[in-house]
Simulated assay, not measured.
Amino acid sequence: MAVRLDEKPAGEARQRKPRARNSPPRSPVTRQSARATRNSEIVYRDLRDAIINVTLPPGTSLVEKDITETYGISRTPVREAILRLAEERLVDVVPKSGTFVARIPVTELQEAIVARKALEEVCVREATAKASKSQLMALRAVIQRERELAEAGNEQAFHEADNAFHAGIASAGGYPGIWTMIEKIRVQVERYRRLTLPQDGRMEMIVAEHAAVLDAIEQGNADAAVAAMTSHLNKLQIDIGTFQDLWPDYFLFDVK
């Protein structure tokens, strides 16, 4: 059933408070603009999540008319949402052909992984020096949750727990803002990672790698912790070729 985002509650006009004597007149344009902005944000977030989660795989056609009917809104907020996604390189708008979910650019993917490794090295070293016992216990609990989710095959929840582990290390190192920086550059990495999780034994392997990082942090061995984290993140880069072979239509091999 279509979701009507622009409907007003019955009787709204009667319940509205009277305007003060010297206040400027209410502008229907302003109200309409605010509603359109809100609708555009909802469509943008929904489409963005579906693209990153690969619910909408690369190459999927996004039909503007279908989206407007699904949300029960006008085309303007839909177009605004699509423009934002295009700026993030998550959709391609092809003149006279349509709008499609963008393929994952390999060069950008590789660069993001390199940048992430450099940033996470800082977090791991600082966490080794500064992490409190309670923070280490919290990280150990995250790993246990990952283990249970891997056994249950819950990919979505595992993905969230995986992010929580890395964010927890940044926080333990006193640099939670670095994880925010990583989140901004890892959009394409997130799409790629969602393709890797269904691989047999992948989640269990990640659990073991996270445990190795945390073991080294708890032992106060920063070099070993960094080496374990680097090995963990290198797996993403090394395996790109494997997943390109599995889903060649999902990747863009040359973005220059």
Score class of each variant (00 low, 15 high):
residue 48 R to V: 07
residue 141 A to S: 11
residue 137 M to G: 07
residue 172 A to R: 01
residue 210 H to I: 05
residue 98 G to E: 07
residue 95 P to E: 09
residue 15 Q to F: 12
residue 175 Y to E: 13
residue 116 R to S: 03
residue 210 H to V: 04
residue 135 Q to N: 05
residue 134 S to K: 15
residue 48 R to A: 12
residue 212 A to R: 08
residue 168 G to E: 04
residue 222 A to T: 07
residue 152 A to T: 04
residue 132 S to W: 05
residue 87 E to Q: 12
residue 31 R to T: 12
residue 252 L to W: 01
residue 107 T to A: 15
residue 84 R to D: 05
residue 126 E to W: 08
residue 144 Q to F: 04
residue 183 E to D: 11
residue 18 P to T: 09
residue 201 G to E: 07
residue 30 T to V: 15
residue 240 I to T: 00
residue 131 A to E: 04
residue 108 E to T: 08
residue 39 N to G: 14
residue 215 D to T: 11
residue 126 E to R: 14
residue 131 A to F: 05
residue 130 K to E: 06
residue 79 R to H: 12
residue 129 A to I: 06
residue 163 N to T: 09
residue 161 A to H: 03
residue 252 L to E: 11
residue 134 S to M: 11
residue 215 D to F: 06
residue 229 M to T: 03
residue 58 P to Q: 06
residue 240 I to S: 00
residue 81 A to E: 04
residue 152 A to Q: 11
residue 24 P to S: 09
residue 217 I to H: 10
residue 115 A to E: 13
residue 86 A to N: 14
residue 239 D to R: 14
residue 227 A to P: 02
residue 239 D to G: 07
residue 24 P to R: 13
residue 48 R to W: 09
residue 80 E to A: 14
residue 134 S to G: 06
residue 177 G to N: 08
residue 145 R to M: 07
residue 120 E to G: 00
residue 87 E to F: 03
residue 196 T to I: 05
residue 159 H to T: 11
residue 93 V to H: 09
residue 185 I to Y: 09
residue 23 S to M: 13
residue 49 D to A: 13
residue 82 I to F: 10
residue 43 V to F: 03
residue 173 G to Y: 03
residue 222 A to V: 06
residue 170 A to H: 10
residue 240 I to F: 00
residue 95 P to L: 05
residue 186 R to D: 11
residue 36 A to W: 10
residue 75 R to F: 11
residue 228 A to F: 09
residue 137 M to S: 14
residue 191 R to A: 00
residue 124 V to P: 04
residue 106 V to N: 06
residue 137 M to W: 10
residue 37 T to M: 10
residue 95 P to M: 07
residue 245 D to F: 01
